[in-house]
C-alpha cells in the first residue's frame, strides 16, 4: 500500500504540493489528473524517490521511498520523457535493469513480443510511441509493486493500448501491483482506472473509487412549466447549472434516487438523468471550485 501523509514540496518560493494526503491500495489502478502545472509530475517524482519531500511522508509498504533506496526496487517509474543514452539499443538498456533490478527474463521476452519490439533497435531513431513501449516493457519486467506512469500511457496506438491494458490487468491479478497513471487523456484513463484523484492547488481535492464517484454525480435534464430561479434548487449540491428558457441542465452530486425525488417534487414536465464520464466529472469538479475556465 502507498500511503502519503501531509506531503509538502516547494521549488524555491513556489509551493507545489501542500499537506497532500493520499492512500492507494494494492491492486488498484489510480488515475492522477489535474490541470497543467498542478504538480502531477512532481508528485510522481516524489513517490519514485527522485525528489525529496520538504515535509510529510511517502511510504510504500511502510518504507520511505526517498530515504530507503531499497524501496525503489519495488517501483517502476516511467517519466514523461524517457532517457536513453545516445546509440543505446534495447539490449544495452536491458543491461541496466538486469544488473540493478529483480529482472524477469521470461516476462521481458513476453512483453518484447507483445509490444513488437526488437532487441537490436537503436532507440534514439525510434518514434515517441516506440520509446514509450520500450519504457513500459522494462517497467513490467522488473516485478514492481508500484508502477508510476507519467503521461507515458498517452500516445500509444489503440491496439498497443489494448494489449498494455490487458497485460496490466494480468499483472495486477498475478502480483497484486498498484499503478498510478497521470494523463491528460481522461477518456483513456476511464477505461483503465478504478480509482482517481484530482490534484489542484497542491492537494488532492477529490479522490476515490471512479465508479462510485461517477454514480454520485449525474447529469439531469429537466423542463418546468414556469421559469425557476437558481435558488429554487437550493438544497442540491449543484456542480454545473445551465438554463435555456424553461429547460435546465444540471450536474448534481448526490444519490441519484434522492436527487430525483427532490426534482420530481418540483413537478417537472420532463425529467431525464444521464451518467457523466470521467472527463465531465473532472471538469465539473473543477468548475464547482471555480478553477475551470471553459
Amino acid at each position: 500500500m502507498l500511503k502519503i501523509e501531509h506531503l509538502y514540496k516547494s521549488f524555491g518560493k513556489k509551493e507545489v504540493l501542500r499537506d497532500l494526503n493520499l492512500e492507494i491500495a494494492d491492486g488498484s489502478i489510480f488515475g492522477l489528473v489535474g490541470v497543467n502545472g498542478a504538480g502531477k509530475s512532481t508528485l510522481l517524482r516524489l513517490i519514485a524517490g527522485v525528489y525529496e519531500n520538504d515535509g510529510g511522508s511517502i511510504l510504500l509498504n511502510d518504507r520511505d521511498t526517498f530515504r530507503d533506496a531499497s524501496s525503489h526496487s519495488d517501483i517502476a517509474f516511467v517519466s514523461e520523457e524517457q532517457y536513453y543514452p545516445i546509440g543505446s539499443t534495447v539490449a544495452s538498456v536491458k543491461l541496466l535493469y538486469e544488473c540493478v533490478y529483480d529482472f524477469d527474463e521470461e516476462a521481458y521476452s513476453k512483453y518484447l513480443k507483445l509490444f513488437e519490439i526488437e532487441e537490436n533497435m537503436v532507440i534514439n531513431n525510434l518514434s515517441k510511441g516506440m520509446k514509450r513501449r520500450i519504457a513500459l516493457l522494462f517497467a513490467m519486467s522488473i516485478h514492481p509493486k508500484l508502477i508510476l506512469l507519467d503521461e507515458a500511457y498517452d500516445g500509444l496506438e489503440p491496439l498497443v493500448r489494448l494489449r498494455f491494458r490487458k497485460a496490466l490487468a494480468d499483472l495486477i491479478e498475478d502480483e497484486n501491483i498498484s499503478v498510478i497513471i497521470s494523463s491528460h487523456n481522461l477518456k483513456e484513463l476511464e477505461d483503465i482506472c478504478d480509482s482517481f484523484g484530482i490534484l489542484e492547488d497542491g492537494q488532492i481535492v477529490s479522490y476515490g473509487d471512479l465508479l462510485e464517484k461517477k454514480e454520485l454525480i449525474n447529469k439531469y435534464q429537466a423542463a418546468f412549466r414556469e421559469e425557476k430561479e437558481r435558488s429554487a434548487f437550493d438544497g442540491l449540491d449543484i456542480l454545473h447549472y445551465d438554463r435555456q428558457g424553461r429547460v435546465y441542465q444540471l450536474v448534481i452530486r448526490g444519490n441519484e434516487d434522492e436527487v430525483m425525488e427532490k426534482l420530481q417534487a418540483m413537478d417537472p414536465v420532463l425529467l431525464d438523468v444521464l451518467p457523466v464520464n470521467f472527463e465531465e466529472l473532472f471538469i465539473y469538479e473543477l468548475e464547482s471550485r471555480g478553477n475551470y475556465d471553459e
Binding site: 524517490g49 527522485v50 533506496a69 526496487s73 517509474f77 517519466s79 532517457y83
Partner: peptide, 18 residues
C-alpha cells in the same frame, strides 16, 4: 546524469542509494 532532468529521473529512481 544528475545534471539532466531525463537521466536524473532514470538513475535517481534506481534501487541504488545516492
Amino acid at each position: 546524469y544528475i545534471q539532466r532532468k531525463k537521466s536524473a529521473d532514470l538513475f535517481l529512481a534506481l534501487p541504488v542509494s545516492r
